[in-house]
């Protein structure tokens, strides 16, 4: 047998490649479905791969008044940090490589990194459009962090109140405990609210319509990405694909951890493994469909002031209500 540490090191590139390929495939499905919902035929499923190949062969321009090392470095940081995020989250039945005590808090912080790299890259590109986009992205980041933090905290609180204080912030423990089994009907309503909140936060994290004010191509010429071309743009393209998979996997690990084998629908073994993977892909599809495709076809873009209002106002309120319901449920059980 191989040394477990060595095994993990060997898994890292495999997970990275799988994450990128999966992300690009889901991006293709997303574009195709959006087109069908608009009564169009839409691009082929492999369109993101074609786009990526094309971007890699295009000229890579660095504007004259950009800070060139920051400008060129930030796309790499964005992709690296989004891949690192994937190492903390179990996906495709592969347990998280860097899993450890309190990794939910680490995930909360690493989640900021790709967006932050975008912001720094935008400021470094020396274009007024990119600067406006970077400012908007920062405002959007501040807004969706609050409901995200409330969601994570409520889950950790639920975990600690139901007897697993030491592992309240461990993603693997939360995933194994299946939070739905820890609450009664009132708490289930609260968790459902938190799930909706987390899905809408995912929309913001991915910068999809209706909360893509930072990348609004019709008003500020692509915003943050206005000056990026060629290879750098391709790296940001990959970042958004990987982030989509990572965020989807996070929602699945927190809220939808049930697998066919655990539910007793399929026997464990090779068939069970395949069923689990297929079930994961289906769950990821549902999450991506709800957080990206459906909402972006249904709704037009919010102004940046409206983004703040929606996240800090309604979404935070919904998250607090979810926290309250979960709390009431716990207190009823304890008393």
């Amino acid at each position: 047998m191989m040394d477990p540490l060595l095994m993990n090191v060997a898994m890292i590139p495999a997970v990275a490649v799988l994450g990128i390929i999966l992300g690009l495939i889901y991006k293709g499905i997303d574009r195709r479905l959006a087109a069908r919902m608009q009564a169009r035929i839409g691009p082929p499923l492999r369109q993101p791969f074609i786009d990526l190949k094309k971007l890699m062969m295009k000229e890579n321009i660095v504007p004259k008044n950009a800070v060139s090392w920051v400008f060129n470095f930030m796309p790499v940081v964005a992709l690296a940090s989004s891949l690192m995020l994937l190492m903390y989250i179990p996906f495709l039945q592969i347990p998280a490589i860097l899993a450890g005590s309190g990794d939910l808090i680490v995930i909360l912080y690493v989640l900021i990194f790709p967006s932050l790299a975008l912001v720094v890259g935008g400021f470094a590109s020396g274009s007024p459009y990119a600067t406006v986009g970077a400012q908007r992205e920062m405002v959007a980041m501040l807004s969706y962090e609050v409901p995200l933090a409330i969601t994570i905290v409520s889950i950790a609180w639920l975990m600690s109140m139901t007897g697993s204080i030491g592992t309240a912030f461990d993603l693997a423990a939360v995933s194994a405990a299946n939070i739905w089994s820890l609450v009664g009907p009132i708490g289930a309503v609260g968790l459902l609210l938190l799930l909706v909140v987390l899905i809408f936060v995912t929309t913001g994290e991915m910068g999809a319509i209706p909360v893509d004010a930072a990348e609004a191509e019709t008003e500020i010429a692509g915003g943050l990405l206005a000056e990026y071309s060629g290879r750098n743009l391709a790296l940001f393209y990959l970042t958004s694909a990987v982030k989509m998979v990572a965020l989807g996997s996070l929602i699945i690990a927190l809220f939808l951890p049930m697998t066919p084998v655990q539910l007793g629908l399929v026997q464990a073994g090779n068939t069970g493994m395949i069923a689990n993977v297929l079930c994961f892909l289906a769950k990821l599809f549902v999450v991506v469909f709800l957080s990206s495709t459906f909402i972006r076809v249904a709704v037009a873009r919010f102004r940046i002031t409206q983004v703040v209002k929606v996240y800090w106002g309604y979404t935070t309120l919904a998250a607090l209500l979810g926290l309250l319901l979960v709390g009431v449920d716990i207190l009823l059980k304890v008393s």
């Binding site: 169009r40 691009p43 369109q47 074609i50 459009y129 191509e217 692509g222 206005a226």
Partner: peptide, 12 residues
């Protein structure tokens, strides 16, 4: 878009 044609907001 079925041929991969996409309208972008910046010449870059």
């Amino acid at each position: 878009e079925r041929f991969g044609v996409k309208l972008v907001g910046t010449p870059r």
